[in-house]
Design a protein around this nucleic acid. Structure first.
Lengths: 187, 187
DNA sequence: GATAATTTGTGACCTATATCACATCAATGC
DNA sequence: GCATTGATGTGATATAGGTCACAAATTATC
């Protein structure tokens, strides 16, 4: 499982065995069961998680009680409530497991220490954050310029693996459309 | 004008005079006129711009020819086409000036060199990118969970300064609604 | 300061998508 | 293996917001 994390980092910065041991020593391993919450609205957000097994989602519950999915995260993805984690505030999002999951997680303090101890890790996190920004901007443009069907088609193209692991109801919630509308599209 | 850039950086990392001179030496100054484009769809994106004067917007033109505003940038804001700039691809966005503008701009190469020469600048860029991520995620949740009126009210709260500098037509385009709908709301 | 261009408001009408309500079917837990 | 819970499809209806069209008001530009 460590290998998944190592490969993820080495896609951006090469590491010696010693360096990777140093990296790893800043993380902990967590095992979670389907339906388990790892972040809850109104509670602190102590960790960023790197998923090595399973599938999670982060979602926001609006004041009318409707749930909106911000992100899915499967193997090789990072997930947290960014606002809660980086600003050290209570969560506005929830994160729970759609499948049994295993993650490598790290605190903000450990992440900062790791960056000091191994400078290239700061570069790694910057690259990851940049890629995240680009993806988020594209999602905004997609929400503004595409209709339901176009967004659904785009989702299938971007995340073909997810289609078979996630109920349509949740894909609808990610795309910002009702499950009925998605049902009427998908054929 | 340099002072605006210095203060922006020093909100996150303190700088000596020498360090700031080093920072500054990696930037160039650009002056642009109202209606001038600084990034154009299908063209390279050589710079990130830090705005010291004036007002710009970045926008996407969809296949039906409709324009969608991704970002405004006034004094003390950064703007570029992230995808084009960081991936060194041609732009998918346009950026033009809503008012005469002045920016400090930097190439990707110079940014990377600057980070090597002055490590704290990498930390600065990481913090900025993180803050950007949080803002983008909130915008996505806003698009998914709020109606037109709520989004408009939120915009006024977030950017009270912009309301008086930007025509409603453009605010509508930023909020993802038609100008007619915004007109009917705003009173 | 006159002319052109842009912005704004508003009516009439249209449409994509939401909502509500059931029925069926599949998965999951004990 | 049965009972509960969740997923999916589909009809009927409602509605927020889009589109088109025009006029008035405001702002740029030479």
């Amino acid at each position: 499982m460590e290998e998944i994390l190592r490969q993820q980092i080495e896609k951006i910065v090469p590491l010696t065995d010693d360096e990777f041991r140093l990296v790893l020593s800043h993380f902990s391993v967590g095992n979670y069961k389907k339906h388990q919450y790892i972040v809850q609205q109104e509670n602190p957000v102590p960790y960023v998680h790197f998923v090595v097994k399973g599938l999670l989602k982060s979602f926001y519950i609006d004041k009318s009680g409707k749930s909106h999915i911000l992100q899915f995260a499967m193997e090789d993805w990072w997930i947290t409530d960014n606002q809660g984690f980086y600003k050290e505030e209570n969560a506005t999002l929830n994160i729970d497991c759609l499948e049994d999951a295993q993650t490598y997680y790290i605190t903000l303090e450990n992440r900062d220490q790791l960056c000091v101890a191994l400078l290239k890790m700061e570069f790694f996190f910057l690259q990851k954050m940049t890629a995240g920004n680009i993806a988020l901007q594209n999602r905004i443009l997609s929400l503004m310029s595409k209709n339901s069907e176009e967004r659904y088609i785009q989702f299938i193209q971007l995340y073909p693996d997810l289609i078979h692991r996630i109920p349509k109801t949740l894909i609808a919630s990610y795309l910002g459309i009702s499950r009925e509308t998605l049902s009427r599209l998908s054929h």
